[in-house]
Design a binder for these strands. Sequence first.
DNA 1: CTGAAAGCGCTTACAG
DNA 2: CTGAAAGCGCTTACAG
Lengths: 394, 394
Amino acid sequence: MTGWPPLLPARHSGHMDSSGRQATEGLRTAAGPRTAAGSQAAGPRSTAGAGPRSGPVRLADVAEAAGVSRALASRVLNGDPAARAAAETKARIVETAARLGYVPNVAAKSLRGNRTGLIGLVVHDLSSPIYLELMRGAREEAARHSYFLVLGDVDELLADEDAYRILISGRRVDGIIMQGGHGELDRRVGDIARALPTVVVNAPTDVEHEGATQVYPDEVAATRLLTEHLIGLGHRRIGLVSGPRQSMTNRLREEGIVTALAAADLELREEDRVHGEWSADGGRAGVDQLVDRWGGGADRPSALIAGNSLVGIGMLGALARHDLVVPRDLSVAAVHDTWINEHLAPSLTAVSLPLHEVGTVAVRTLLAGSHGGRHILSDPPPVLHGRGSTGAVG
Amino acid sequence: MTGWPPLLPARHSGHMDSSGRQATEGLRTAAGPRTAAGSQAAGPRSTAGAGPRSGPVRLADVAEAAGVSRALASRVLNGDPAARAAAETKARIVETAARLGYVPNVAAKSLRGNRTGLIGLVVHDLSSPIYLELMRGAREEAARHSYFLVLGDVDELLADEDAYRILISGRRVDGIIMQGGHGELDRRVGDIARALPTVVVNAPTDVEHEGATQVYPDEVAATRLLTEHLIGLGHRRIGLVSGPRQSMTNRLREEGIVTALAAADLELREEDRVHGEWSADGGRAGVDQLVDRWGGGADRPSALIAGNSLVGIGMLGALARHDLVVPRDLSVAAVHDTWINEHLAPSLTAVSLPLHEVGTVAVRTLLAGSHGGRHILSDPPPVLHGRGSTGAVG
DNA sequence: CTGAAAGCGCTTACAG
DNA sequence: CTGAAAGCGCTTACAG
């Protein structure tokens, strides 16, 4: 049988750790325990059979093969500018490392250097295409600095105190990027930031948490732009279906709308706004509620703004079900431009937010040292993507 | 100023590593270098100011505080059944650890134990809601075993040889779950599986790679179900818009369709199938192509199957643009049931695949030792979700 | 400039 | 059953 040996020991009566979870002995890396004899004898990586040392190539192997000390090998391989060995020696070390296929042991580096090369990304909505863009931006920037991202889930972290501690206090990661707007976790941001450099992304929170940096896009500018677009099309009464009313994100988005309306001597009427979940279901529920209020009459807004892209998708579906034709009967425009928008029927007008950059900047901020305070990203600025769901009034 | 010290050293003239990327000195965990004096003196974690040892609590601190050796502390804390200290002693150790807030240093554990507690998840489509479900399943199962997931991107890994080596050969993770169906990476699966326990998920590949286990859902059963649903509605001529023709996934899905059709004495006509990308754009292009073939005539299928959910979304949008009304003019049904489906107008009939379980099983397989071969998941079986996009023919 | 040595925090044969 | 010691692979003050 090819492949790896069974690693979860057969006795499934496996011991439990203190949290009661099963302690997996599971995976081990390729290298078996090194035989003491082995490391004494012959050169590293004896190619043809009888070689004593198996396992991955270590720094010591490279140093020996290159005829230098481990210290020098380490310095040269890490590009330490202080290492001024003869250029030829340096070249030999580098070449030897390459030839032997040397890859530094990450665990040893971590233990020694007190950094893991890992950043925790803690989200609470892995299904949303919205945050994926952010995630992608973060991943790319992390990769640029040879960092990897470790995935965490808010609810799980809150439910599993052990996982929480391992991630936050176990020096499992060098820093945490967490998605804000989750009431319960938001309350623990202070603790987290005390343990680890922390950046809260996207959903701004009320509190300025000690030490945690907040990074989010210019929400106000985005909805202002959206609203101006609608006003430009002749709409005078504009409604809103959004997320939780008191959430900071909603408040900022409303602020943009209200500002733009005020500039045109208009207002956002109380009766024209609905608050619920930040999801397609929320959008559907919001429309149902509004239609109910309207009672079939014509006394209603000519346009609706969707608090986010998911809400917008739900709204479009619900409006169709109520036989309201978009944009003839009602225009719809959403916050967030995802790939789905242009494939909907009608395609969905939306304003894009620089979520990719939020991810990028979050990582950069972490790497540069998180210092608290808020970064509002204005570059790139929100961009309006006019599509089929919005049309001139009348 | 509150927060963490600047960690990326000011001199941005930072040295480059061998790959030419900037070597980030970036993040460090809280603990500064321990003062030699500190670890000698007083007890750990002296609460009130003058305490010499700062930094996280170590096993040694717990052992000292509990009055036992590090060895015993380690054994008890890890639930080693061989440790049969007095129950009272054990309790004291556990209690002390809790009181001091001891969290084991992951790097030290990794170095010593040769396992990282990390599984690499390598995907090539972070924007697809389809794979998110898989990702979520994997994450949950990993968490159950105290494992975390590290995110990798196929294209990046292929472009950046250094990142590839660090992830695959640097003992950065204990195993790899990679999304198959990416021609180029598929070709390297053999190498990867030689370096690390490897599971290829979801998109089956042609080759049975030495040592790598494949895990995927029962594709054939899924499209068979979908097709039977359409046949049951009276459809006799059914078309297909799918991904790359030669991809294993497409071939399996076609097999299901052909099988179901054959059972009803029907066939999948060459002219009724289009192959392109596994994306909404692909779905749109496919419909455009078909409509072009039909040239406005009525000689066309009465139903179309979408190779996956993204393709289906693109198809729905495209059909609307061609003024073809679904399901009146044409029924549409897709593979994969995502949350979007029920919010589309019309809502999209689809067959669900157990992607969550694919993720779960992938992790379990890895932890149990990957042995090559294929797992086709039949539990839970594919389920048909009939919605607005499919109707009786005529 | 370079090498020898110490040490990061942990676990596990090895003796007692 | 438990403790002292070795060692996982690396880097970095510290001497030379």
